[in-house]
């Protein structure tokens, strides 16, 4: 024979338990909201900046004018590439220039293999730095018999890869 005279105690106990749990939950949840994605914001900013710089180096200043990027890759001019890239990259509208470092390599096809030729070596800030971002740009090289290693003289498309990091 079921007697429901103990229900009030049980209900009271459960209500008290729920109140305690709800309070504990509210306290814990207000402090534990974390925002994933904050870690990638500097990566996005650097990647957009690097892509912009390579695109602007690839744009001649006048119609039919000199394309800086193609010339620098044709001559394998590492110092020129380094200084031009960093000049665009670190320029700010006011205040001190930014402190971004870079290293560059060029990927080209040799028969069936894809080779990589280091154009600008990373400097001594290679360790102990923020995470690096890779940006790339295609460059078309014309047939040029005077161009020696490593690309060879044939007309080809190569990929310039630049690593940037803030140090």
């Amino acid at each position: 024979m079921v007697n429901d005279s103990g229900q009030l105690y049980t209900m009271e106990g459960i209500a008290a338990g729920l109140v305690m749990l709800l309070t504990a939950y509210l306290i814990l949840s207000t402090t534990s909201i974390y925002t994933p994605g904050d870690t990638h914001i500097p990566d996005m900013q650097l990647e957009q900046l690097g892509s912009d710089v390579l695109a602007m180096m690839d744009t001649p200043d006048s119609d039919g004018g000199e394309n800086h990027l193609v010339n620098l890759i044709n001559r394998s001019d590492r110092d020129g590439f380094n200084s031009t890239f960093l000049k665009y990259c670190n320029a700010r509208t006011n205040g001190d220039p930014d402190t971004i470092h870079m290293s560059a390599s060029v990927a080209y096809r040799d028969g069936d293999r894809i080779e990589e030729h280091q154009l600008v070596k990373p400097d001594e800030t290679w360790t102990g730095r923020e995470s690096a971002v890779r940006v790339t740009r295609w460059v078309q090289l014309d047939q040029q018999s005077t161009r020696g290693d490593p690309y060879g003289s044939r007309a080809q498309a190569v990929l310039v890869e630049v690593l940037l990091w803030r140090a």
């Binding site: 079921v2 007697n3 429901d4 005279s5 103990g6 229900q7 105690y9 049980t10």
Partner: peptide
């Protein structure tokens, strides 16, 4: 003698749900 067994009745369960 109050019987304090913690048994629920059906309509209490419905209300509680």
């Amino acid at each position: 003698l109050r019987n304090d067994e913690g048994l629920f009745s059906i309509d209490f369960l419905v209300g509680f749900t």
